[in-house]
């Protein structure tokens, strides 16, 4: 009896350890595959040139159109998401401080919003675009991605704000500050690490998402100059060019994959650094 107990424990310890280490292996495997394929294809030309002779059939040139398009869309969407998301999170934690039930209901709705897949946002962005009379363009892409990432900014920022100790609110109000001053001068400062993390997280999600820009941003070989022109994006550059029968074009897809992965890794590591550095100087 005693023996079987011990064996069971040993078996599960090994099994669960195996599951954990296999995750590290999988991550390494994915990144190595993408990087090996990508760096073989990645030349300076890839980064600084737009594709020649059509992105699907022409083998010349690089993916600059997609890099610029992705950066435009991700930056634009992040700025819109900050303008709407930051004050929402502050409102949730300043004005609704005493309304726990409302607070929790709102968090519940935001979490559910976070769970909506990006293809649904893409389809909705498309109907919105038709309704507003827009074409597939940078603007439509930015608006759709902004819808997608705003809940992420609000919830991530809110999560940090909600850990700020109650005494700080009371002290601020007792010193005679208005609630706006409390929001922007105390809460925003205290939760600044969370804010940066939220922004970076949203940016990473925005730059990597393909399904939401598929309908709305279109695809082009050119770098968009105006906000009403279509824009190429890195995820779509990978997706479209990977299906091409021409090997040089597929190489471009692998290069785009490596570039996108580098961007995502940089963003996610920066977010980590920030949240560690700023959380040192906080009170809690």
């Amino acid at each position: 009896m005693k023996r079987s107990k011990k064996t069971e424990e040993a078996v599960f310890k090994i099994l669960s350890g195996f599951a954990t280490y296999s995750l590290i292996v999988i991550l390494a495997f994915i990144i190595i595959v993408v990087f090996v394929k990508g760096f073989n294809a990645l030349t300076w030309e890839m980064v600084v040139k737009t594709p020649k002779g059509g992105y699907y059939y022409g083998g010349e040139g690089g993916v600059l159109n997609a890099i610029m398009g992705s950066l435009y869309i991700a930056f634009g969407a992040t700025i819109i998401a900050i303008i709407i998301g930051m004050p929402s999170a502050l409102y949730l934690n300043v004005y609704l401080l005493r309304h726990k039930k409302t607070q929790n209901t709102i968090r519940y709705i935001l979490d559910a919003l976070w769970g909506i897949p990006s293809i649904v946002y893409g389809a909705f962005g498309f109907t919105l675009m038709l309704y507003l009379g827009l074409n597939a363009s940078l603007l439509a892409g930015i608006l759709t991605v902004a819808l997608l990432i705003t809940p992420i900014i609000v919830r991530t920022f809110d999560e940090v704000l909600s850990t700020i100790p109650k005494g700080l609110h009371e002290a601020t109000l007792a010193l005679g500050s208005t609630r706006t001053e409390m929001a922007f001068k105390v809460m925003l400062k205290q939760g600044f690490s969370g804010f940066i993390t939220a922004v970076l997280l949203a940016f990473g999600r925005g730059i990597g998402d393909a399904a939401s820009v598929l309908f709305t941003a279109g695809y082009t070989d050119l770098i968009p100059v105006n906000i009403d022109e279509p824009a190429a994006t890195l995820p779509l550059a990978i997706f479209f060019q990977l299906g091409s029968p021409i090997p040089e074009v597929r190489e471009r897809a692998y290069a785009a994959g490596a570039i996108l992965t580098i961007i995502i890794l940089t963003v996610s590591l920066t977010a980590r650094l920030f949240s560690r550095q700023y959380s040192k100087s906080n009170i809690n």
Binding site: K13, R205, R272
Partner: peptide, 30 residues
Amino acid sequence: FARSAMMRIMLPVIDILAGLPSVIYGVWGI
């Protein structure tokens, strides 16, 4: 089971895995 150092290693791993765009998983799949 694991020591807390293991958790510190795994959290970034989980984070990065969660943050990789789906097309990258698609490329890996193909």
